[in-house]
Design a protein around this nucleic acid. Structure first.
Lengths: 356, 356
DNA sequence: TCTTTGCACTCTAGAGGGGGGAGTGCTAAC
DNA sequence: GTTAGCACTCCCCCCTCTAGAGTGCAAAGA
């Protein structure tokens, strides 16, 4: 999908005659079905072309030389490489759109919870259940955070509980130390003051506004306001403690023989727990339109050497909110998975739409 | 630790002479160290007693008959059974309290975040890191929920965002459908009204109170109040969407050979994801005082057949808040793990103490 | 020139077959 | 009650062997 791939693809297009393409397609499909290296004999039977195994062998040798296939060892059949899958997906695979009743079923399974987080959880489980792979949904990032409401509540000592309502339906809270005591009434005033100057503004704007206000009007501000601003500063200071993504059904990955190695599997699970790498990968799909696929080594992460990641951004009200998708072995049923990820992204986007 | 075990133990005490106990102790320690079945030869060397292997064999046969040991097969050494571990832990193990500097190190690693959830996360990671097992912390249950503050915010359509602050420092929010539209001013009034009658009360009290109020004063209540009550009803209706526990380092369990079977491991991980069974098990430890240990089959769950669970309730300000602990293979270094779990529970309790 | 046939070759997976080693239980002597 | 001796059992590792699958290559055929 990148330029270099486009280039590679079209050059391949030229080099690969129709027969070779059909053979590759048949091989990949067969391998995805059975998980066994495919030999020339099988392929000559399955391809529909009436070619002898020897001829097929020659063609396979060519495909191997082009880097689309490999054999695990001398006398096994052949298996697609990442490049092989890439060509298969980009030019050989015909993806059927999901039939209407299937879409309806998915829609039903997603549910209509009003809470965004519950919806994402549901979408993640849905993806995992339907594809039998691991499902992921990244929660919306807040590079543009509109502040809806602020609330301060006094706790014991100098601690204050700060509640922020951002982007209309998301609530965050944290506890800060203020360094001095405030009465409930003072906090109420601070709450009111901040709600007045903040409401509807971007978080960074609010921050700047606060700082400016503070410098300009230092002398005429009473102690309480000063405190409110300090508090707000502290409250906005730390980045939001986002629970950046929701993962479901990781353990399904244990079902696939090609990932059965304990060490690799552990690394993979650790990557899920660490989140960072996966989030970084998914972020790349954020700006793309439609379904995005990373096959094995393409992702750039060693951990995913044996894995493919199929993602799609989801958007609501015209704004891209996040990315969802699945992670599984490179040998996955792309023809099924792709439309499912695609539809799920649309469904989640629609379900998140605030007007209902 | 249950009565039946007490009974068993004391009868064992009588039946097991000192020598047999020492042999059992040595065997268990050795097995915990190496993970290999222990034979009579090794044991006769390690025990410190100058006994020939043959004598040791006789003693081992007795221990096996009592159900404290088993041999995996005829010509392997012997391995402790769950009962064997139980006896070892209850009467043979001497647990050294953690040295002060170790406690200080743990204290440092726990950090002093003000947010309860962050603290629990930290405690869970701490347990996992220090013991090299999976760490668990259950989040406080709210059978007694004191309402501190309520806030209503209007969203699009008839949706209202409800924010509840309970037990002083915990914030929950959900979105409800009200069935009618409210203006911001109306919602503000409702907020004020509810905060007046709710603040500091138990959630169930608030509920009852609301219903009573509603019946008594139906006629004189204006529409808005009615709406507020309806909203509150809906808001309190669904149980809190608790994220009931925090687990860290599950993948460490993949390091232990005795759990290396894919199927079992998957069942184990699924149990972590499902949460229910584990929570149920941990709930049993909630009422106990101090460290509680479930060895293998003792837990009553097939999934934990090969696992032990070491837990301790943690409390703050005299009230038990939750349970924390570790899950690992039955073959774990109990002498290290027990004091660590114990101390971590105390540290977490102290860190959660609201006065600071 | 492309395709096919035939053939020798390679490699794996699985079965079978000993040893070696570790550990046991039993018996008889101390 | 303890020990030495001994026969026995069982696992594990290594080796071999074979069947099977698949390959590449060369030479014949279309």
């Amino acid at each position: 999908m990148t330029d270099s791939n486009e280039g590679k693809r079209s050059s391949m297009d030229k080099r690969l005659n129709e027969r070779a393409q059909l053979l590759l397609k048949t091989l990949v499909e067969r391998y995805i079905r059975d998980g066994q290296p495919v030999g020339s004999r099988t392929l000559s039977r399955d391809s529909g072309l009436s070619l002898s195994p020897a001829t097929v062998r020659n063609a396979m040798a060519d495909l191997e030389e082009m880097g689309l296939l490999v054999s695990p060892h001398t006398s096994a059949g052949r298996v697609p490489t990442a490049q092989g899958y890439r060509f298969f997906i980009d030019t050989l695979l015909q993806v059927e759109p999901l039939p209407g009743d299937e879409v309806a079923r998915l829609r039903g399974q997603l549910g209509d919870d009003l809470d965004p987080h519950a919806l994402m959880q549901s979408a993640s489980t849905l993806l995992s259940d339907v594809t039998r792979l691991a499902g992921i949904v990244t929660v919306p990032r807040h590079d543009e955070v509109r502040l809806r409401h602020v609330e301060f509540l006094s706790l014991s000592g100098d601690q204050v509980l700060v509640i922020l309502v951002i982007n209309d339906r998301e609530v965050q809270n944290r506890i800060i130390r203020t360094g001095r005591r405030f009465s409930d009434a003072q906090l109420q005033q601070a709450t009111n003051y901040l709600n007045e100057i903040c409401a509807g503004k971007d978080l960074s704007q609010v921050r700047e506004g606060l700082l400016r206000e503070m410098r300009q009007a230092r002398e005429r501000m009473n102690e309480m306001m000063m405190g409110a601003i300090e508090m707000a500063e502290k409250a906005f200071d730390a980045g939001p403690p986002d629970e950046d993504m929701v993962v479901s059904g990781q353990t399904r990955l244990m079902e696939y023989g090609e990932l059965a190695d304990m060490d690799r599997l552990r690394q993979l699970f650790d990557a899920f727990a660490r989140k960072r790498d996966i989030l970084h990968l998914l972020d790349q799909a954020l700006t793309a339109r439609g379904v995005q696929i990373y096959i094995g080594e393409e992702s750039g992460y060693d951990i995913f050497e044996q894995c493919s990641v199929v993602t799609a951004p989801y958007e609501s009200d015209g704004r891209v909110l996040g990315v969802l998708g699945v992670i599984g072995p490179t040998r996955m049923a792309y023809d099924r998975v792709i439309p499912i990820v695609d539809v799920t992204a649309r469904l989640l986007g629609a379900a998140l739409n605030p007007r209902a």
